[in-house]
Nucleic acid binder design. Structure first.
Lengths: 251, 251
DNA sequence: CGTTCCCTTGATAAGGTTCAACCACGGTGG
DNA sequence: CCACCGTGGTTGAACCTTATCAAGGGAACG
């Protein structure tokens, strides 16, 4: 699935150009290293940054008073962090480093400037609209998919994202999440995640043994995930294509 | 909760101005009436419109091949429709009129122009970012809230939206959704929605008897929904404040 | 006056949670 | 070197929420 088929053709040029400009801004800003468990963004601290994650994984976390916890988003190297909340006074939830991370940051006040130029404004809007699509796809799965299907989607999705960024080539990859974190991402309990993983293992579909994931039967995994494309076609290296197509997208 | 406290102060003026401009565009375009069940937007037809819903309710619907169905969004009078998919070649799913609706439409190609001006670009990005927040709030609830809580959130949420647009003043309102539609929105089955509604009725919290909803005990309903603000404070008439605060927002 | 759409209720089953115990592994300190 | 501890994974049993299947009822409508 090429980019041009995903976004409206008349804005395609702006999108590419805007992306280039934003990448340049990140490229020109200093790198920073942060150890695992560093809180990169918190609703408490009003000062805001936008991040480009270069190495290591991170995730967004939301907690309720009564102890319920959700991980709405998982960030892998190459992801941009903080854009969807850049227009708000305070982000909705915390972003935490899962591993030691390396990232580049720019002040969120540049958003004011981004919105002044058509190219960057278009790309900015595109980023948020992608975040919206992902959030909604996740909501739809939580509404109607069972545990195994959700797990399959997550594995296919992460594998796809890493593959498009050329961070993996084979069907196995590094997944630095604990089962508790997977549970919080999929809206399940750790016990049930464990049992569902055992099912995938026994069925020889995928082996998840932290931190290694080995996908043994991609066809069945994709089928479980509700995807019927065989994947591996039209892999482009252009970063706009790096976004993961939603499982909910019709064929 | 005032607008200025929700959005970043430096973009507030642009936001207000951008909203004004967009409202003017809709205001200048012809009104259209469509009967119930009209398909306003479909992924099949590539031509795209942006709508301002003036009267009647609508909803977005997604269906899977195996018959599973989801209603990701419910639109009430005053809502804008189609912005979150305006940058894509094709919308992700259908938008259907639940009742006879009256709406104003503008061609989606104006988005190109909107993005060229800072004020409208800012407002456009804001609209999408609001859609993102709502989608994520919904995902979080589907992940960790049980049936009664989801139902309570929905009722409080809709009541709040109607109240802010001054479409209702009392604690009862018109809800033109069938129980099947409620189920598809909340990720439940019609049978369980029915039983959960019975619970709310027996507990004298709310009576939902299509098409009338009567909220009998707002305090308990809000408590079930996870909201502890008493509401009714700082009601502003400015439309930016019409958006519903997420239940997930901290206090 | 039958048909259609929607609501309601009962019985039963499945999927997921909770509670609890135990295991494996990698420190770390005596 | 080993005892100890913390973190994370694994498993069993009981339980609960929600789904599924099935049947019936009422209101609106041609």
């Amino acid at each position: 699935m090429s980019d041009q088929s995903r976004c409206h053709p008349t804005i395609y040029e702006d999108l590419v150009q805007g992306e280039r400009e934003l990448h340049q801004m990140f490229h020109d800003s200093p790198s920073r290293i942060a150890p695992a468990k560093t809180i990169l963004i918190t609703p408490e601290r009003p000062s805001q940054w936008l991040y480009a994650l270069r190495q290591g994984w991170a995730c967004r976390i939301r907690e309720w008073p009564n102890g319920r916890r959700v991980i709405p988003e998982i960030y892998v190297p190459g992801d941009l962090i903080g854009f969807e909340s850049a227009l708000r006074t305070r982000p909705a939830d915390e972003v935490v480093a899962i591993q030691p991370v390396s990232l580049q940051e720019i002040g969120a006040d540049v958003v004011f400037g981004l919105l002044a130029r058509r190219t960057t404004a278009t790309y900015f809007a595109w980023l948020i609209s992608e975040a919206q699509r992902r959030a909604e796809a996740r909501a739809n799965r939580l509404a109607r998919f069972d545990a195994q299907e959700r797990l399959a989607v997550m594995l296919v999705d992460l594998h796809e994202r890493l593959r498009r960024r050329e961070l993996v080539t084979a069907t196995s990859f590094n997944l630095p999440l604990t089962q508790q974190q997977i549970a919080d991402h999929l809206g399940l309990t750790i016990v049930h995640v464990n049992r569902s993983l055992r099912f995938l293992r026994e069925e020889k579909i995928a082996i998840v043994d932290r931190p290694i994931v080995m996908i043994r039967d991609m066809a069945r995994l994709r089928q479980l995930a509700g995807r019927h494309d065989d994947g591996g076609a039209e892999l482009t290296t252009h970063s706009l294509s790096r976004e993961t197509p939603s499982i909910d997208e019709r064929e």
